[in-house]
């Protein structure tokens, strides 16, 4: 009890100004990229500064942090996915490759947060659907190691896609898709996802539905 109280008193209040989005791709017109744009608009009009880490980016260069291995189409990530899905047992080489890229991505996350002095991160679907296992695992370890305030925005889950049902990575899925850590607040896009996240993982969450374009609020 004394140890817990000491830990609580040592915790510093977070003064949040700089916010870092993290995803596999933040570019083009896919749903996740569009939603990031809307969230960033809302944040910036409330005087927060937004930054972006992904494997593909079309945001302002001075706010961007490109990490090629974060992309789900990176050849090494595609190879890992091929080795993990559609079979029930994993090769040792696949575990090694996954861990190696995970460590590299975790290093990149530390560099990103340091470079832009980021106070809060928003992983966009990267901790929900396993398009990039090493990225999700790196994020989970990074959050566990730093305790950084995190809003995990979830658009899809692995259990919604039949192609993920037969796999050799239940341990990875349970670790990172989604993770359950004290500094993460979970946001989903509809009430069905909310119920499923609570039912399957016991994780409480908040529903924030996708937005209509900006014109709606100006009418």
């Amino acid at each position: 009890m004394k140890r817990i109280m000491t830990m609580l008193t040592q915790q510093q209040p977070h003064h949040i100004k700089n916010i870092g989005f993290i995803s596999t791709r933040i570019a083009g017109t896919d749903g996740v990229s569009l939603e990031i744009q809307k969230w960033a608009e809302v944040l910036e009009r409330n005087r927060y500064h937004c930054f972006y880490l992904a494997g593909e980016l079309d945001r302002a260069e001075e706010k961007s942090f490109l990490v090629e291995e974060a992309h789900f189409e990176h050849p090494l990530i595609q190879q890992i996915n091929n080795d993990l899905f559609g079979r029930g047992q994993r090769k040792g080489e696949t575990s090694e490759a996954t861990q190696k890229i995970k460590d590299k991505l975790k290093g990149a996350l530390y560099g990103y947060v340091k470079k832009f002095d980021i106070h809060l991160i928003i992983p966009e679907n990267a901790l929900s659907i396993p398009m990039n296992f090493p990225l999700g695992m790196a994020l989970t370890e990074f959050i566990a190691e730093t305790g950084i305030p995190t809003i995990a925005h979830r658009h899809d889950f692995s259990w919604e896609r039949p192609r993920f049902l037969i796999n050799a990575c239940v341990d990875y899925l349970n670790m990172a898709f989604p993770p359950y850590l004290p500094s993460i607040k979970h946001v989903v896009i509809n009430s069905i996802a909310s119920e499923q996240l609570s039912f399957k993982r016991g994780i409480s969450n908040l529903v924030m539905m996708h937005l209509f374009p900006q014109g709606l609020s100006n009418r």
Binding site: I16, K38, W39, V42, L43, L120, P149, L206, L211, L216
Partner: peptide, 30 residues
């Protein structure tokens, strides 16, 4: 009907709705 749908969308899917929830969520960390 169009006006009815617009009012529903404004109530549940506008930037102001997101703003209220998201800023509150961020401030809960502070």
């Amino acid at each position: 009907m169009v006006e009815h749908n617009y009012q529903i969308a404004k109530r549940y899917f506008s930037y102001e709705v997101l703003e209220e929830k998201l800023i509150h969520l961020i401030r809960a960390f502070e």
